[in-house]
Amino acid sequence: MTSAIDSPALPGDLAVVFDFGRVVFDWQPEALLARILPHRVGSADAAAHWVAQVFQSYQGDWGDFDSGHVDVPTLVRRIAQRTGLAESEVQAVVDEAPLSLLPLPGTVALLQRLKAAGRRLYFLSNMPLPFAEHLERSHHFMAWFDGGVFSSRAKVNKPAAAIFDHALDQFGLPAHQLLFIDDHGPNVEAARTLGWNAVQFVGHDELERELIERRLLSLQD
């Protein structure tokens, strides 16, 4: 593990680490299930119910999928047995989910500006392996990143400390030289506890202001 150094990084000297879901890529599980399972998702309450059942707050079966400990057939079988959904229904959701991860234009524009400004870019994302491979194949801006960690390859999910330690090893940088951006509060707090700079993503406008304040972007970039 790369050890952190207590002295702070200079303003503008941080590498920027992005979460993916709801930060770089849109993720709307309620809309996904309503589209794939319209016979089951006929209301907002039904959508919330089935999102909880299928994704389990990204713990349980789906958490094992995120961390690379189960493959797609095992996931489909486990969710079907647990929820009463047909395996064909679960398979349809799993097949469609990566296709619904569409880039968020505002964040992609910030990535482009950061890259043009010479900033080092990394990612740290809870992501099942088939989804990660789809993103790598499908989006040209994945080449803008200097490196990254997917939970399914690290075999551990955020907010566990082990994935942040693994990321330090992969990036070759100490925690204090990284700015981590994630939409999920517990992940942000975990990073801060481990000495990372971290901010919670609420939108690309707010993130732009944060990056300018930290001298990672200027108004001219």
Results as ranks from 00 to 15, higher is better:
A109I: 10
E87C: 12
A143Q: 15
I212W: 09
R153T: 10
E89G: 03
H204Q: 13
L217H: 01
V24M: 12
G21I: 05
E210P: 01
Q91H: 13
Q91S: 14
D71S: 12
G203D: 12
S100G: 11
V24N: 01
P186Y: 11
L179D: 02
M142K: 10
T107P: 02
M127G: 03
A44K: 13
P11Q: 06
A167V: 05
R82W: 07
D205H: 15
D71W: 06
G195Q: 06
V93F: 04
P105H: 09
L129R: 15
A47N: 09
R35Y: 08
S67L: 07
A154G: 04
P174D: 08
F20I: 10
A117H: 04
A31T: 14
S138R: 13
A47S: 14
S3N: 13
E89K: 03
L211S: 01
A46G: 08
G118E: 09
D45E: 15
V202F: 14
A92K: 03
Q59P: 01
D169A: 15
A167D: 03
Q220K: 14
Q53V: 10
D182T: 03
P73A: 09
P159A: 10
E89A: 04
L129W: 10
L114Y: 00
D13R: 12
G21E: 09
H69T: 14
F65R: 03
G12M: 08
W144D: 14
A34I: 04
H39L: 13
